[in-house]
Write a protein that binds this DNA or RNA. Structure first.
Lengths: 206, 206
DNA sequence: ACGTATTACGTACAATGTACGTTGTCAAGG
DNA sequence: CCTTGACAACGTACATTGTACGTAATACGT
């Protein structure tokens, strides 16, 4: 019965993700996305329930890019691999991080990700509430750290402007902040994240 | 010269925060806030640069409610106290969490908070990049965990609807997720958060 | 008393999400 | 083959958003 669908949900997904990657979250609207696809805004509603569903689509698109590793037997290696893989793809789409943090999605890609992390954590002997706590700690760490790192006004690795602004604030009140401001530029973002992960992993291993 | 200011930034702040607490983030707009204050939208621009500044004002209002503890000499006790105090106030304003995660602010309340956490962490012997990593790990954990806990579709402590939805998903593909779904209801949110903090603290203490 | 800077507020416009209606297109039943 | 009905594409229209701009009122320094 259908007169042939002109697009696909997957097409909307990649187009929306590309648009957000290039122009930021604020540039994603029904009209702009429809324009990039060469159609009107209302056409999109055949593939998406509402605007919120479009956001979920973008989140799902990012989560789908996470390459979940094979089970290696060593749970610590697996957890590290999952977390680092997540961080790598999230780092490729920094504009989407607020969405990933905020939008709750029950799509299978997100569920697969959660289940994989849970499976690895369960192999440390945890179950029930302990497993829940470990899961939330790790997943909260990934997104929280990534967001903190990529939106921290005091430590934007590329922007020297804000570093100068950090140096400008009263040194008697915020000595540690000033000390920190320079440290981020020295260490790379990758090493920085891995060092944070070391802390969490040490806590999990105890 | 001024014809008597009708309002204050602080008044906008408390009104906006109350509005967000009651009706959610989406209910905060220039017009709705102006309406609660009994005036027009444009009046607000005398106290706020633009809409983004209003968001920052709300974030700042929440951060100001965090009661930072006195230095006790034991850095672990201080870090715990700061983190738990943060979580307590954030828990009172769950709708603001996405904003706190997203909006970067350089206001003194946020800077005071950061400096206090840095001071406590520095007393563990860390400095430079180690201090930076520890800071981001802890601060990322707080917000990431809180957001994960309060917006997780699988474990909303009060809403039995979503728990049922979790039980409905295929048990052969997501066994751990189903196991977890029930665990959140058993443990309270407080205990859950504190258990997560235990993990991070153990990692910091190593 | 007067000028001037600053606030309060109304008007107006562009952009957004989307409810609704119309039109076109396919696939199956007579 | 023709009809019919379900679904997709798309246009129109409206409410709501942020805010640029202009006008009127106010309170102080001189």
């Amino acid at each position: 019965m259908p007169p042939k669908a002109k697009f696909t949900r997957a097409q909307l997904q990649t187009a929306a993700l590309a648009l957000v990657d290039r122009d930021g979250l604020g540039a994603l609207s029904m009209r702009t996305l429809a324009a990039t696809l060469g159609t009107g805004p209302m056409t999109l509603y055949n593939y998406v329930r509402d605007r919120g569903d479009l956001d979920a689509l973008v989140v799902e698109g990012v989560m789908a890019e996470v390459k979940l590793p094979r089970d290696s037997g060593e749970w610590q290696r697996d957890v590290r691999a999952i977390v680092e893989a997540t961080w790598r793809t999230v780092r490729c789409h920094p504009n989407v991080i607020p969405l990933v943090l905020t939008r709750r999605t029950l799509h299978e890609t997100t569920l697969d990700w959660a289940e994989a992390l849970l499976r690895a954590l369960a192999r440390s002997g945890r179950s029930g509430v302990d497993l829940l706590v470990a899961f939330r700690t790790v997943s909260g760490f990934v997104m929280g750290f990534a967001q903190a790192q990529l939106s921290d006004p005091l430590t934007p690795d590329e922007d020297q402007q804000d570093v100068a602004r950090a140096q400008a604030l009263p040194a008697d009140r915020f000595p540690r902040l000033i000390e920190i401001a320079g440290a981020a530029a020295k260490l790379g973002a990758d090493k920085e994240f891995r060092a944070g992960l070391d802390i969490v992993m040490a806590g999990l291993a105890r």
